[in-house]
Design a binder for these strands. Sequence first.
DNA 1: ACTTTTTGTATCCATATTGTCTACAATCAG
DNA 2: CTGATTGTAGACAATATGGATACAAAAAGT
Lengths: 303, 303
Amino acid sequence: MDRIDSMRVFTRVVDRSGFAAAAREMGLSRSAVSKAVIQLEDELGAQLLRRSTRKVTPTETGLAFYERCLQILGDVDEAIASVKELQDKPTGKLRVNAPMTFGTQHLGPLVAEFMAEHIDVRVELALNDRFVDPIEEGFDLTIRIAEPQYVTSLITREIVPARRVLCAAPSYLDAASEPESPLALKEHRCLQYGYSGTASHWRLSGPDGEQTFAIDCRMWSNNGETLRAAAVHGQGIALLPTFIVGEDLQNGRLRSVLPDYPPPELSVTALYPRHRHLSAKVRLFLDLMERRFGGRPHWDLVS
Amino acid sequence: MDRIDSMRVFTRVVDRSGFAAAAREMGLSRSAVSKAVIQLEDELGAQLLRRSTRKVTPTETGLAFYERCLQILGDVDEAIASVKELQDKPTGKLRVNAPMTFGTQHLGPLVAEFMAEHIDVRVELALNDRFVDPIEEGFDLTIRIAEPQYVTSLITREIVPARRVLCAAPSYLDAASEPESPLALKEHRCLQYGYSGTASHWRLSGPDGEQTFAIDCRMWSNNGETLRAAAVHGQGIALLPTFIVGEDLQNGRLRSVLPDYPPPELSVTALYPRHRHLSAKVRLFLDLMERRFGGRPHWDLVS
DNA sequence: ACTTTTTGTATCCATATTGTCTACAATCAG
DNA sequence: CTGATTGTAGACAATATGGATACAAAAAGT
């Protein structure tokens, strides 16, 4: 038997002055209780109990050990309780890493709500668009906008699809002729996410399946917010997720372009270490994200 | 794995920041270490360690648990050490029960010697001639003068044979005619151990084997010392162990009677609880008894 | 003075549990 | 790029476990 359990059994035997009573109370057979104490005695190399058929009393050694056991078992219970507390109640620090734009636009309010709900959690929100190793840097949670099937050693949980649209300002579309086919894109001013090294084409799904279409890049940015600003100001056509341009589409600052040729869908994905046991703070944050963003997210109200 | 051992493994993994290093130091396979920690995590329902292939760091929960583990393991080690101390070094109280005469005559000096050797042992010596239940009354050691094959639930250890002799003072033997045969005993004043209810005969071994011979009891006593005194003062023939009358026989105050008809031998026997683990104080006391009394005891120098 | 009940333990035995070995993916050193 | 090292999963044999049973000792009931 586990030595900690043996100690529990032993103290119970001492408390009840008998093996049988201890066995009954602990839901064990008398054999098991007897064996546990004998094993404990053998390991210690000392007699702990003086047995007569009707009464069991600790020896001098046994009594000394009994006192120590109480102390130790108390500490063990306390340690377990403290772990369970940390595990089951949202406490401690939650370190979240997320991309800049999604973070400022949508995660900010959510973090505020989360903190209001769980006042014992301190949150550290790190926003950046470079790739980080969440384990190496000790993040509990990393939010990425990525292909759904993105593989990694981390657990990936798709919170919600990130629909993307081609869009431009009405002023731009009025001035230039609105493209009727994706082939026309290379005649348009296109606003590309990424660096100047990024390929100058977009993948779009048309009636003939997914195809790659050349574009004329007039601007590159690794930040969606700046691309949106350029688009709103009539500087061209951008391919942006609806969580950035959803509101613009609703109030007409931007208009969807080539709606029959949607780009492949991405996913708002949460990454966290491959853990068997998710701590409460992480679990609750994920739950809140799914409640707020899942299903039909608020930025996607116009289908 | 035993949870205490698991905790040891876990703390070592934290100390060394790695499973492999911990495994090497503890003489375990990496698998065993990994499984131990995983089991601990499963039982606690919490992640304790954040693993990346090259570095292992405790989680928030893990660090808290680590601190508790150090405390608990320290206490466990201390408890084990204290038991071993009590077990291996002669400490504490030694409770000895013994018959009155043997106690006063022979155990007294021995106890003194024992105490001088082991100054940390307190000795409680209870001398009485009634039968006591050593377990019920909590004696560590009970000395009895008994038939060698005396059965009991206790462990019996024969320290040394207790030879007995028929003896009387020369003055008595000169006055009355010295008996030539045990049959003559019923014409003699006999000093009997026991109470008036005790049978009035002695068992003696002659050429024809062990036989019972009637005696004429003139005195009963449950205390050998008083019988000896009566014999020395010429009041008759007593059947007494040599550890009482040995010296008297050597210096002629008493003379052996019917030496060819010796009574059955008894044994100086130590009784102690049926323990797998004998504590140091008991073991050492038994050893000292065997050293001092064993072989040819000093009271039996004249064969 | 009996029977009955209760005690602690030894033994048997099916069932779990254990730890090692091996294999593997991930990662780092050179 | 190669080779070494990491933590873990799975297979497997060895071991341990705990319940049922039996039993002697002792108390309680009759």
